[in-house]
Design a protein around this nucleic acid. Sequence first.
DNA 1: ATATCCAGCCTGTCTATACAATTAAATCAG
DNA 2: CTGATTTAATTGTATAGACAGGCTGGATAT
Lengths: 251, 251
Amino acid sequence: MSDVTTSNLLNLFDDLPDAPLPIYAKLKQAITMKISSGEWQTNQRVPSEAEVVKALGVSRMTVNRALRELTAEGYLVRHQGLGTFVAEKKAHSALFEVHNIAEEVAARGHKHHSELLVLEAAKATMEEAMTLGVRTNHGIFRSVVLHFENDLPIQIEERIVNTTLAPDYDKQDFAKHTPYEYLMSVAPMTEGEHLVEAILPNAIECERLQIQGSEPCLQIKRRTWAGDDIVTAARLLHPGSRFQLFGHFGR
Amino acid sequence: MSDVTTSNLLNLFDDLPDAPLPIYAKLKQAITMKISSGEWQTNQRVPSEAEVVKALGVSRMTVNRALRELTAEGYLVRHQGLGTFVAEKKAHSALFEVHNIAEEVAARGHKHHSELLVLEAAKATMEEAMTLGVRTNHGIFRSVVLHFENDLPIQIEERIVNTTLAPDYDKQDFAKHTPYEYLMSVAPMTEGEHLVEAILPNAIECERLQIQGSEPCLQIKRRTWAGDDIVTAARLLHPGSRFQLFGHFGR
DNA sequence: ATATCCAGCCTGTCTATACAATTAAATCAG
DNA sequence: CTGATTTAATTGTATAGACAGGCTGGATAT
């Protein structure tokens, strides 16, 4: 937990795009850059308010605002009497994180495999077009993959993909890599949304998941963006008896 | 878009639990209560900084901080030259966080009310102690609150609370404010975890939620930390037919 | 009547100062 | 050496004052 040398402070504002920003905002930007560039390491102590005041000749309240807001945003941690430190990590809610079912199963030390049930190129119906934010009849891929954990079904993954953004989706070997892995490689996800519901499965879904019709399922609908475009929309169905969604937020 | 009359301001701090909070925090709390109670309507203009300064005799910077933070949290919208207004609804990013069912219902433009079914002081069982990270027999409060949206049950909220961290939990009027609102005021949440499952409700839960036994429910178990301490653990049960969990991540 | 300008209100920011609370380290008493 | 006490550093909060910049409505000039 070594300190950031005060000498660094003098060039805090150096390689900043000279937008007409308020001082506190420039300070925030300068600090997040130090952190994301790795120059200021996790748990490292950052300059105290007094040091920044002295080095940059700004008011303490201005520095305080920058540091306070960065703390609220999870970049820093502050302890009265001790100082300000680079936070552990910027943890999003893992609950709402996009994950890879294969990795998740592996993380539990279990065996994963999957079966490709459907893979086809098609033209978007009106509903699908709405979901993906494209025009009706725009080219899409549809896939249905059944995932297993220790040979027991754990997830039905129904997915539609924008062909424009992932043109080779239908040429992948989904026994080797999950759809998620391929999509992340061609169009890194920058944004997403989820809708989580408890539903009763229909007959086909029951059969695929090897469960009774009375067993509730967790349904997650998920859309992911790369920039302004929607890459893919998925409907993930998990048997309630074998699946929990765990998440952590804050810090 | 009528104004909030300045006379309201004089009793802004009135029915606040007198926790030892900083002024800006009390102000934030008072304002969110005005909003969630419906006394201050969407798009209504709220008092200007100058008016609050005059009415409450606090500094403008203090008022500014409260309003600025509430704006960042999505409660208010500010326009230079015009004033400050109650925001349309909570932004998605906020819905992500631990939320307040009352606000959520209000955000949909529906009526919320709740019934307090259980409220008792007790000693933690071994399981409860594990959950809260305290010793067995440590003092806790248990509460069960049934929340309604337009007079239809929407959530059973079972909660245990660490008495050390929220000693006045059992003195609150939960018809006025949700447990969440009080807990946030006395021990601002810094971290949390969720566990989401699809389950079948038992007979009592069915009756409380006014649903059939075959209807799946979304169960959310949630623990929230303030610093290193676990403040509260809740089990939230939603009827699947009336509830979706929406989340948004990235950018 | 119409266009222009301006005064007044409001938020946005910055500064300087003050005191409280917390922590760790240094100092002191035994 | 040990334990208690003081001190210094640091963050947390509150205040008063200042000026900039955006918006509106009313006064003014045409």
